[in-house]
């Protein structure tokens, strides 16, 4: 503070690179695990191990469902490129452009290399190039265009235009605004996201039910665990089926020196893992139950 002026800190100009929800969830899991560890001495040797295994198993499934539902790692693609960065200048920047697809929208990252680059030689200004922008497509396709009844993503795109986001971000987002004939990436990802999201929420609800049942009626709990596995598997199947609809050309966003091509990301694999985990655990538990 410089007297007599009021306290005022320097600006902190960084992109929101981390996801609050993700971090919150992960922290919550670790807190729970920690609590479980603290409580565990209350159990006897083997029971303690079982207890911790159960807790971490169920926490894993829960966190997997929650994280991947909100995560932007269903499909990822990125490219390092030299690209125009903004209008009104002819300078190009070197940057990593990334596209991260979630169930509710996309996350586009643009990180300069170096982060600070001269963008307009005329004015010798250095810009901080580190963007992390999100676009959501909402529940419904809605009408074409960018007006109030258009798709959420289109509206966000239009707002981004007004906000003047860097060109690479605009270019990528724009791909998802198209919706006609066979060019319907936004629609496809949205539909995939919608159904997958529904499946995941169902699984999540079942997960809560399963946890209650594991205490109350373990056998029913096992069935529900299996059911969770099935639902998770269905969500994976739906997702990949809708996203790779053969009629829609594969999304490939060209940049100088390469293009952004999408491959399945951590969210996808996490759900698949959780699905297999649930199914195998359920099967094992059922076999154990039948045998003994």
């Amino acid at each position: 503070r410089s007297k007599p002026f009021p306290t005022y800190y320097c600006p902190n100009e960084t992109a929101a690179t981390h996801d609050k929800v993700e971090i919150g969830l992960i922290v919550a899991v670790f807190v729970l695990l920690f609590l479980a560890l603290i409580v565990s001495p209350g159990y006897r040797k083997w029971q303690r191990i079982f207890f911790l295994m159960k807790i971490s198993g169920t926490l894993f499934v829960g966190i997997a469902i929650a994280l991947s539902n909100f995560g932007y790692g269903w499909q990822n693609g990125s490219v390092r490129t030299k690209t125009p960065y903004r209008q009104f200048t002819k300078e190009e920047i070197t940057a990593d452009v990334g596209l991260h697809v979630g169930l509710r929208g996309i996350n586009i990252t643009l990180k300069g290399d170096p982060v600070k680059q001269a963008v307009d030689t005329n004015h010798e200004q250095m810009e901080n190039i580190n963007y992390n922008e999100r676009f959501h497509w909402g529940l419904q396709q809605k009408r074409i265009g960018f007006g109030p009844y258009s798709n959420d993503l289109n509206q966000e795109f239009r707002r981004a235009r007004w906000r003047g986001l860097p060109l690479p971000i605009i270019w990528i987002a724009e791909y998802f605004t198209l919706d006609g004939a066979y060019i319907r990436w936004g629609r496809a990802f949205r539909q995939a996201g919608f159904y997958t999201n529904a499946m995941l929420w169902t699984s999540f609800g079942l997960w809560i039910v399963a946890n209650i049942l594991f205490v109350a009626a373990p056998k029913a709990g096992t069935y529900v665990l299996g059911l969770i596995g099935i639902f998770l598997l269905i969500s994976i199947i739906i997702y990949s089926a809708v996203v790779s609809d053969g009629r829609i050309p594969k999304l490939s966003i060209p940049f100088q020196g390469g293009s952004v091509e999408l491959t399945y990301g951590w969210s996808f694999w996490l759900v698949l893992t959780a699905a297999l985990f649930c199914l195998t655990t359920a099967v094992v538990l059922l076999i154990v139950e039948f045998r003994w």
Binding site: Q87, F88, T89, K90, E92, R161, W162, G164, L167, E174
Partner: peptide
């Protein structure tokens, strides 16, 4: 030999009125 390339959707032609 770099140029400012015109966009496609007509935006940012006018600095004061991006639209």
């Amino acid at each position: 030999e770099t140029y400012e390339y015109e966009g496609y959707d007509g935006w940012y032609n006018n600095l004061a009125h991006p639209d």
